[in-house]
Amino acid sequence: MSAAFDQIAPHSDGAAPTSTGEAGDFFALLKPRVMFLVVVTALGGMVTAPGSVNPIIGFGALLAIAVGAGASGCLNMWWDADIDALMTRTAGRPIPAGRILASEALAFGLVLSVGSVLVLGLVANLLSAAMLAFTIFFYAVIYSMWLKRTTPQNIVIGGAAGAFPPMIGEAVVTGDFGLTSIVLFAIIFLWTPPHFWALALVKSGDYARAGVPMLPNVAGPAATRRQIVAYSLALAPVAVLPALMGFGGAIYLAVSVTTGLMMIGLSLRVLKVTEGEAAHKAAYQLFGFSILYLFLLFAVLLAENGLGLMWALPKVLG
């Protein structure tokens, strides 16, 4: 059980614990970079969906989806505070660093979770709200509380949580979801393992110290490298499907093919370079490029479906 529960209890000397956190610390709990990516992918589901939606509904829906993503991140940080304190990459987060109390983070995350789902249900429809609620539950409970500490396939199964936003976006517009957003779901789902396992290769010592059974610590670095290549090979052709299905254009086709080949090339370099600092550098390069890769795919989809992000928003919202 997470040590986050222990942090909720008052100090043994009877003094009430105090928080030194500022607004920036609470914002950090929301994992803003992840929130941004969620908004981009949800917007991708909205612009590629048939039809349009009222501007107020569209803006409110995007805001609710962003807040729901932030709530998931907050609950994840609350639960993982004990292992975050053991890893160099996460030790400076607000809870393990002592700036935010675990009880405050829990309350903050729960309020945002309920609020985001209610708002989405009110401004959009029940299906999109139910999907957002399930996404929050999946990430906070299924992934964070169960999968992350019990199986090396935690990232594979848990990656579904990060892949749902395009389906939520289409549901906002149509009240349903179809093959278009399912393809976008598949792209994100297949992208997640090579993205996170590249980082896990570099941070395997951190994960071992925290007792998290990431694939490099369980199956070994060699098996992890092979899995990275396998998922990259599966991802590249799936990422081309939007162009083949007609909701991505010529620019998307060119970008998806080019960056897909680059993704495969970097993963093959990770497979080939296995020793010393060069191996860490290769894994870091793949990790960094994978973020750009996914952003470019959805940015081009937004551009082609609305002549740029500033045009895509009015197209989706009105």
Score class of each variant (00 low, 15 high):
residue 69 A to M: 02
residue 62 L to T: 11
residue 47 V to C: 10
residue 36 F to E: 14
residue 44 G to Q: 04
residue 50 P to K: 08
residue 31 K to A: 05
residue 52 S to G: 12
residue 49 A to P: 02
residue 63 L to T: 15
residue 23 A to D: 03
residue 69 A to R: 03
residue 71 A to G: 13
residue 68 G to S: 04
residue 61 A to W: 01
residue 38 V to S: 04
residue 80 D to E: 15
residue 81 A to E: 14
residue 62 L to I: 10
residue 73 G to Y: 01
residue 36 F to G: 15
residue 72 S to N: 02
residue 65 I to A: 04
residue 64 A to S: 12
residue 27 F to Q: 13
residue 61 A to Q: 08
residue 44 G to C: 07
residue 54 N to P: 07
residue 64 A to G: 07
residue 31 K to P: 01
residue 74 C to G: 10
residue 29 L to A: 06
residue 59 F to V: 15
residue 40 V to F: 06
residue 30 L to V: 13
residue 58 G to I: 01
residue 24 G to N: 05
residue 61 A to V: 11
residue 77 M to K: 13
residue 33 R to A: 06
residue 30 L to P: 07
residue 72 S to Y: 00
residue 30 L to R: 11
residue 22 E to I: 12
residue 32 P to R: 13
residue 45 G to E: 02
residue 28 A to Y: 00
residue 21 G to Q: 08
residue 43 L to G: 14
residue 49 A to T: 03
residue 78 W to E: 08
residue 36 F to H: 14
residue 66 A to V: 06
residue 53 V to P: 02
residue 25 D to L: 03
residue 34 V to T: 12
residue 25 D to I: 09
residue 26 F to N: 09
residue 29 L to P: 01
residue 79 W to R: 05
residue 43 L to Y: 06
residue 28 A to T: 14
residue 57 I to M: 15
residue 27 F to G: 12
residue 31 K to H: 06
residue 65 I to K: 01
residue 27 F to N: 10
residue 44 G to E: 09
residue 57 I to P: 02
residue 60 G to L: 12
residue 49 A to Q: 07
residue 68 G to F: 00
residue 21 G to R: 11
residue 34 V to A: 10
residue 74 C to T: 15
residue 21 G to M: 11
residue 51 G to N: 07
residue 69 A to I: 00
residue 78 W to T: 12
residue 26 F to V: 11
residue 56 I to T: 15
residue 54 N to C: 10
residue 53 V to S: 11
residue 33 R to T: 06
residue 47 V to F: 06
